[in-house]
Every structure is written in structure tokens, then in C-alpha cells.
């Protein structure tokens, strides 16, 4: 298998006042194309920070991040933004849909950054909604949908421009068990059938079982045996 992501000696710290808080110190890891990784760990261990680095919404202080063989850590702000829209789909704990847009319009948002024609956009939106099983809810607004349905819309939005990587930060954190399991099997299907590489942060051991493997993060360090596996 080929590596989709390679982190080499990544360092990241924040300064709060005078205090410097190191989050990652020489973090090295790789994620294969087609993997489905669950990341677990206590609050403040750096899970979200890691997703931000992987998704190009933050930059490392040192070290390199390769995606598909290309370094992204030194891209200009504009190039990084464009890279993000082409390669990464994001799924949030609270869905982050635009309340005034319909489900279909929400899903269409990333396509507004492409050169697709309105007709192509409509087709892609319809396909994405079909994949998450919401083709009959296209005209509904977020407040007319249940939490699980809203998260499905968000997943459709994340996959509509066909990115290789999906990043999910506690995607089921706000859902009940049954709904959570439905969402997780959808992610599993995306991984198995469409070959999406998925990295999912979760506090829920049940949720982690849907992934191919689970990595435990603590104080910015992964369990070495898990990483090596």
C-alpha cells in the first residue's frame, strides 16, 4: 500500500502569555491510502491540533507534512486553501451547516470553488445526497432535519468534490447511540466502497470499532506499538 500522508519530525507549540506549550515534539507518522483511523485520547492531548495540521488549516512549527508525495507545509495561504478544497473533506461535531441554505445548497458549497457547470454541480450534489441516503431531503433546511440527518448532509458536503481524505472531529459526539452507529457505518461504507481515507477523532470506544485501527494519543505522543503496527 502507498502512503497518503507522511508526517516527519513535526513540531507544534502554542504560546499562551509567556508560557510556551509544546503539543507535538518530533511527531513522525504515516497513514496509508484507504486507511480508516480512529484517534482517541484525553482532552487537550492534541487530537484537534493534529487534524488541523493534516487538513492544512494550521501549519507545523517544524518538520514536514507530505500528502500524496507533495509537501504542503510551505504552501502559500492561497495555495493551501485551494489544496484543501481539492483534497480534504471536513466533518464537524456540530455539523456546521449554513442554516439559511437547503441541504442541497449546503452540499453544493464546495463545488462553488470549482469550475463545474451548474448542471454538473446539480448532478454531483444529487449523487452525494444519494450516497448518504438523503435524496428526498434535498430541499429541507437544517432546522427541518434531525441531528443524524444534518450530519449526513455534512458528510455529503465533505465528499461532494471527491477528496481523497476525510477528517472528522468527533462526528458522533452529539448523537445518540443508534444514530451514531448509522453515521459510522456510512463512514465505513465510504472507506470500503469509495476508498476514502478517513481520520476520525472520537472519545467513544464503540465508535472507534468502526475504524480499521485505533491510535491513542496522550500529551502529543502516540502509543509507539500502535504506530508501528
Amino acid at each position: 500500500m502507498t502512503d497518503l500522508i507522511r508526517l516527519t519530525d513535526v513540531e507544534k507549540s502554542y504560546t499562551r502569555g509567556k508560557e510556551k506549550i509544546a503539543i507535538f515534539d518530533k511527531l513522525t507518522m504515516r497513514i496509508e491510502q484507504g486507511d480508516f483511523v480512529a484517534i482517541m485520547g484525553p482532552s487537550g492531548s492534541g487530537k484537534t491540533t493534529l487534524l488541523n495540521l493534516l487538513g492544512g488549516t494550521d501549519r507545523p512549527d517544524k518538520g514536514s507534512i507530505e500528502f500524496d508525495g507533495k509537501n504542503i507545509e510551505k504552501l502559500s495561504e492561497g495555495k493551501l486553501t485551494a489544496w484543501r478544497s481539492a483534497n480534504v473533506g471536513f466533518i464537524f461535531q456540530f455539523y456546521n451547516l449554513m442554516p439559511i441554505l437547503t441541504a442541497a445548497q449546503n452540499v453544493e458549497l464546495p463545488l462553488l470553488l470549482t469550475r463545474l457547470s451548474p448542471k454538473q454541480r446539480r448532478e454531483n450534489v444529487a449523487t452525494a445526497l444519494k450516497i448518504v441516503g438523503l435524496e428526498d431531503r434535498a430541499k429541507h433546511r437544517p432546522r427541518e432535519l434531525s441531528g443524524g440527518q444534518q450530519q449526513r448532509v455534512a458528510i455529503a458536503r465533505a465528499i461532494v468534490s471527491d477528496p481523497k481524505l476525510l477528517l472528522a472531529d468527533e462526528p458522533t459526539g452529539d448523537l445518540d447511540r443508534t444514530t451514531a452507529d448509522e453515521i459510522l457505518s456510512t463512514l465505513q461504507t465510504l472507506n470500503r466502497e469509495l476508498g476514502k481515507t478517513i481520520i476520525m477523532v472520537t472519545h467513544d470506544a464503540e465508535a472507534a470499532k468502526f475504524a480499521k485501527r485505533t491510535l491513542h494519543l496522550d500529551k502529543g505522543r502516540f502509543d509507539e506499538r500502535e504506530l508501528a503496527a
Binding site: G55, T57, E77, G78, T81, A82, R84, S85, A86, F90, F92, N96, M98, L109, P110, L113, R157
Partner: peptide, 10 residues
Amino acid sequence: ATLRIIGFSG
């Protein structure tokens, strides 16, 4: 923030 993450520019 969501729009920026998705890829909309500043």
C-alpha cells in the same frame, strides 16, 4: 470558519 476550512478565501 467553516467556509474558510472548506476552501473559501479570506
